[in-house]
Nucleic acid binder design. Structure first.
Ligand SMILES: [Zn+2]
Ligand SMILES: [Zn+2]
Ligand SMILES: [Zn+2]
Ligand SMILES: [Zn+2]
Lengths: 147, 147
DNA sequence: TCTTGAAGCTATAGGTACTAGAGACATTAG
DNA sequence: CTAATGTCTCTAGTACCTATAGCTTCAAGA
């Protein structure tokens, strides 16, 4: 049986985070020592490691909640788990696409700056007027004002 | 002079967001009509468009605050603005790198799944044990438990 | 002119995933 | 035994909004 601090070290999770996971019901309420301190068994350690790993892979806590309940029913088909992972992959891909567009815009504005005064700074200029952007990132509507 | 709704449409920003920006001091307090409704001039519209565009490029609000105050002093050197943009570029690059690693891991675990039961699902298996991952994403500490 | 519906007002609370701090109790090493 | 560290509960804060409730104001049609 581990105290919360040891468990945190073992799983690479900070102590308040463990208590938070317990609070939101992601970890079951553990046994307590005579002095009211939390004591964790190997099962809890596995569960926390699972959560931690899924968080490292970017899964949101709600998805992790679903994955955990799936992993508690090993005889079921795994399609639901694969759906969650596939959705996460889509989300990651979408974020990469968006960030790559942003990267291009940022690089362009930075390299075009002549390093003079604010009045001539290409960074400020482009931020003031999306028309100066390449077609990369999606401003949901026009940010250009009437001249 | 525009009401808040028209301004929101013109700049592509939702009405509560405009009020929020005012609340945190990113937009100045506008004039009010006789009936206490906010009225915006072209200057405010430009400022909001600037904020919106910078948000679209992923700048955090604090960085935008700095960029706005820089753009109000056009005779200064633009080095500070370029630093902010360069930092943002670095942040974007770092996120892309991390997400790309996650993408690889997710793709691997999904394609390796045999579409059977949870007990054999590669997705659940890999989440349970970071050792099954490629060296891609960084788990900050071991998530593997003693057997 | 009256009415109705949309738009605006304030204030508060919620969402995500934690993190930090205060003040009190428990455990452990020397 | 004492001092240092660990743990307890509770609250509040981070970033960036979004949603709701209950009210007032405005613009247009009958
Ligand atoms: Zn510049
Ligand atoms: Zn743009
Ligand atoms: Zn599977
Ligand atoms: Zn891993």
């Amino acid at each position: 049986m581990l105290t919360i601090g040891k468990l945190g070290i073992a799983a690479g999770v900070k102590v308040p985070t463990i208590r938070y996971y317990e609070q939101i019901g992601l970890l079951p309420t553990p046994d307590r020592s005579a002095g009211n301190q939390r004591l964790y068994n190997a099962k809890a350690q596995h569960r926390l490691a699972f959560i931690r790993h899924a968080r490292d892979l970017g899964f949101p806590l709600e998805a992790i909640r679903d994955l955990l309940s799936l992993s508690d029913t090993p005889e079921q088909y795994c399609a639901a788990a694969d759906v969650i992972a596939t959705e996460q992959l889509s989300a990651v891909k979408a974020r990469i696409a968006r960030l790559t567009a942003l990267q291009a815009e940022l690089e362009r504005m930075i390299t075009q700056c002549a390093k003079g005064t604010i009045a001539d700074c290409r960074v400020i200029e482009v931020l003031s007027d999306h028309e100066l952007c390449g077609e990369g990132h999606g401003a949901r509507t026009a940010t250009r004002c009437a001249p």
